[in-house]
């Protein structure tokens, strides 16, 4: 295998392991690593193979990028999926991560459940209007609205909790 083929093969494998990053981010990382490889070979007596060995395997390198990237990105996002993925990555490192993931999952489930229930109740009341006296109809509607509000509040609080947890995790990763 020629030097160029070795480099291309390494970068291709790196991109595969960086699949969770955007294409632009993958391009940027691959470009920088390629520059590093070529600079290292030009400025030393090392072969391409030796430089690649010093870099670590594509998977090891991608893992290091992914850990910082996923948690950092998640701590600034609102999407429950991204936040849960970030905390899942953190949970691999310890008990607090597992706790954050479980609390987040429970919070989102409960919040979504309450909102859905709050939306279904008025529909049920309206379709079974004959069964209810007018006074209880308004009470039921008000209760449904309250459920929606509590569910929404729970989703908001869970999101804030997850973001704060992930920021804390980032600080723990930093030396000071």
């Amino acid at each position: 295998m020629t030097d160029n083929e070795q480099i291309a093969s390494y970068l291709t494998a790196l991109r595969v392991h960086l699949a969770s990053h955007g294409v632009a981010e993958q391009d940027e990382i691959a470009r920088e690593i390629e520059t590093h490889i070529r600079d290292s070979v030009e400025n030393s007596v090392l072969s391409v193979g030796a430089v690649l060995e010093r870099l670590g395997s594509p998977q090891e390198l991608a893992d290091q990028y992914r850990e910082g990237f996923l948690v950092g990105k998640a701590s600034r996002r609102l999407s429950p999926l991204v936040l849960l993925r970030g905390s899942l990555r953190w949970s691999a490192g310890g008990l607090f991560g597992i706790l954050a993931f479980v609390v987040g999952l429970a919070g989102y489930f409960l919040g979504v459940g309450l909102v859905l229930f709050g939306l279904i109740v008025p529909v049920w009341i309206l379709t079974h209007r004959a069964l209810h006296p007018p006074a209880s109809l308004w009470t039921g509607m008000a209760s449904a609205l309250l459920l929606c509000l509590i569910g929404g509040l729970m989703l908001l609080l869970t999101t804030l909790f997850m973001r704060a947890s992930l920021r804390t995790f980032q600080r723990w990763q930093s030396p000071l």
């Binding site: 920088e32 590093h36 010093r54 670590g56």
Partner: peptide, 16 residues
């Protein structure tokens, strides 16, 4: 340091 270590750190510091 292992050479692959520095680039993810630089990337994270840039993101911050």
């Amino acid at each position: 340091l292992a050479e692959g270590t520095i680039y993810p750190i630089l990337n994270r510091l840039k993101a911050e």
